[in-house]
């Protein structure tokens, strides 16, 4: 008479399971599969100064600015930055203005370029930021 042998069940200890899930999360985020992480680019210019910086070509940027330490709106600021484009900003008469993109400029791909020219009397700053892919909180349902 043959005895039935109980089928072997594969089981993973809690430690190994936690290690695998943790490494999977690190791999997913580390390989950039959910995005490049929260970005922040800040340009600061003293009166009469011009500065520039590179940023990642991404959509969903949030723009903020200060003129003389006070918050200022940026008229016409693009929230999508395209690769190899130059995005000029200028401070005129105490106001921050996004000027038209100069597509005639030939720039190497792999980033987007922000320039800031300060024709105002006070120091100005321009900040471009993107959010985390993982939200804390996830939805912000109670806050908004």
């Amino acid at each position: 008479m043959t005895q039935s042998v109980p089928a072997r069940r594969f089981s993973l200890s809690e430690d190994w399971l936690a290690t695998l899930i943790g490494l999977l999360i690190v791999a997913i985020i580390g390989l950039g599969l959910i995005g490049p992480g929260p970005q922040s680019v800040t340009l600061k210019a003293k009166p009469g100064e011009s500065v520039d910086k590179t940023a990642r070509s991404l959509d969903g940027w949030k723009v903020s600015a200060t003129v003389g330490g006070e918050k200022a709106a940026v008229e016409g600021a693009p929230t999508q930055l395209l690769d190899a484009q130059v995005y000029p900003f200028v401070c005129e008469g105490g106001q921050m203005i996004a000027e038209a993109v100069d597509s005639s400029l030939s720039l190497p791909p792999g980033g987007t370029y922000l320039t800031l020219t300060n024709n105002c009397d006070a120091e100005v700053s321009l900040t471009y930021t993107t959010d985390y892919a993982i939200r804390w909180p996830l939805f912000g349902i109670f806050k908004r």
């Binding site: 999360i25 985020i29 580390g30 490049p36 992480g37 929260p38 970005q39 985390y132 993982i134």
Partner: peptide
């Protein structure tokens, strides 16, 4: 930036 994203995780 990716490390910051991992902080959220």
């Amino acid at each position: 930036e990716l490390v910051k994203e991992m902080n959220r995780a």
